[in-house]
Design a protein around this nucleic acid. Structure first.
Length: 425
RNA sequence: GCGGGCGUAGCGUAGUGGUUAACGCGUCUGAUUGUGGCUCAGAAGAUCGUGGGUUCGAAUCCCACCGCUCGCCCCA
């Protein structure tokens, strides 16, 4: 009999890791409140078309990483590989276009991508996703970036930089890409295999190559940021000015290209200053003014980001963020002998009615063993109900912190006595 | 999809051709009959990732597969 394992690229979040998750989720909630973001939850799976149309069916995410399946009714469904198209689907489905604009939404949602796992990359991960729909204002771009910035700072993550780029609008970008291809075409045979592929598939990525064979050509290549259309140039400058005003540490990154087709104008990533690996990126996003239209809606501008909670936690650990053990059991109920079980249950219920965390020892274990459990759980007091106590109608209350004496109290008064003891008499 | 590293009790490790695979932590039990932490004693817990090969003999050497992990492509 082979034992089961968690599927490749998935992980169990064990109790010891929960404080990190709790801290991140708390911070997400708080930063969302501060920025006026409203929570939305979309299904784990969607019609596969939402992503094929939305994310773009030539993107890696859709082409090689999406979990697609047919359900018993014959519908083609996909496990959510990224949040934006799903949220836009909901925006359109529920007529959010007639809510006060812009609509500011966020979620934390599991994402699924069939990819080779490695540090910071999993087949199931969780993203904090934020989307603001219905505004083309560059101030909104900056505001969205400050959501990320504030979140990271709340969590003790420092030494990070926002990389800021602009992909211009669709038409001017096409012209630029032609220019770029013209520049590279004569050198094609001397480029790396990766870059030869990029030339066809995603020419913008040519500039992002780290291969030695490609480096000599990068220098003279036309840079997107130097060839922006006037409107995109103005937008980009406005975002920069706003980020400066907000105190966000950022740099222009003329090579920033993102793996999704729908972005235009502002794109950004947040990377740790000491991490150059691709999956060092802890968050990223951009503007997508054409996407709502692609999904069948009226022309509606939008911008958003995703940030991986697992990566945030890795970064927190790198920064030495640690948590006090969460306060657990307050009162441990030790019981022994005939009829003590129901008495213990009754005590536990009475304690919980008073808001006290109570755990009952296991039947049949010695007092010593049960008290050891109490100690292991960090309980601050024990209530002991044995044969003698049952016969006398009392419970023993024993302080486990400090050096108080244990004493007998009437059974009915025991819960209140425990509460008083926890309060410090 | 490509390349590197690693698989020994729940966890961390030792053992690198020779009896019943060792240690620490953790778990459970006990230290005069009903009392935690510290200490002490004992116990349970391992098909040495799986399968094949070499050998008188394999955790140890070889091969394949599986898994984990790190990096590349790409992404959070």
């Amino acid at each position: 009999m082979t034992r089961f394992q968690a599927p490749r690229g998935t992980q169990d979040v064990l109790p010891a890791m929960q404080p990190y998750w709790q801290a991140v989720l708390d911070a997400v909630r708080e930063v969302a409140r501060l920025h006026g973001l409203q929570r939305i939850d979309t299904p784990i799976f969607e019609d596969a078309g939402v992503f094929e149309k939305g994310s773009g069916d030539t993107t890696d995410i859709v082409e090689k990483e999406m979990y697609v399946f047919e359900d018993r009714g014959g519908d083609r469904l996909a496990l959510t590989p990224e949040g934006t198209p799903a949220i836009i689907r909901a925006y359109l489905e529920h007529g959010m276009g007639s809510w006060p604009q812009p609509v500011r939404l966020y979620t934390t949602h599991p994402m699924f991508r069939y990819d080779r796992p490695q540090k910071g990359r999993y087949r199931q991960h969780t993203q904090f996703d934020c989307e603001v729909l219905g505004s083309a204002d560059p101030l909104v771009d900056a505001e969205v970036i400050t959501v990320l910035w504030r979140l990271y700072s709340m969590l003790g993550i420092r030494d990070i930089t926002v990389r800021l780029g602009s992909l211009d609008d669709l038409e001017p970008r096409r012209a630029y890409v032609e220019q770029l291809k013209e520049y590279y075409r004569p050198h094609l045979s001397r480029l790396s295999e990766d870059s030869q592929r990029r030339f066809e598939r995603n020419p913008l990525r040519l500039l992002d190559s780290k291969d030695e064979r490609d480096l000599p050509f990068k220098e003279g290549a036309p840079k997107l940021l130097d060839h922006l259309s006037p409107a995109a140039r103005e937008h980009h400058e406005a975002v920069r000015a706003a980020l400066t005003a907000a105190g966000v540490k950022f740099v222009d990154d003329p090579l920033l290209v993102r793996g999704l087709d729908y972005y235009n104008r502002t794109v950004f990533e947040v990377v740790p200053d000491d991490d150059t690996r691709a999956q060092g990126t802890i968050g990223g996003g951009g503007r997508y003014d054409g996407l709502v239209g692609l999904l069948g809606g009226p022309p509606t501008p939008g911008i958003g980001f995703g940030t991986g909670i697992e990566r945030i936690i890795l970064e927190m650990q790198k920064h030495g963020v640690v948590f006090e053990p969460a306060p657990g059991t307050e009162v441990f109920i030790v019981h022994r002998g005939e009829g003590s079980g129901p008495a213990a249950i009754r005590l536990a219920a009475a304690l919980r009615d008073r808001g006290v965390a109570a755990v009952i020892g296991e039947s049949g274990r010695s007092l010593k063993s049960q008290l050891r459990s109490a100690n292991a759980l960090g309980a601050r007091a024990a209530l002991i109900v044995g044969e003698d106590e049952l016969a006398r109608g009392v419970a023993l209350i024993k302080p486990l912190m400090g050096d108080g004496e244990q004493q007998a109290v009437p059974m009915e008064a025991a819960p209140e006595a425990a509460v008083r003891l926890l309060r410090g008499e």
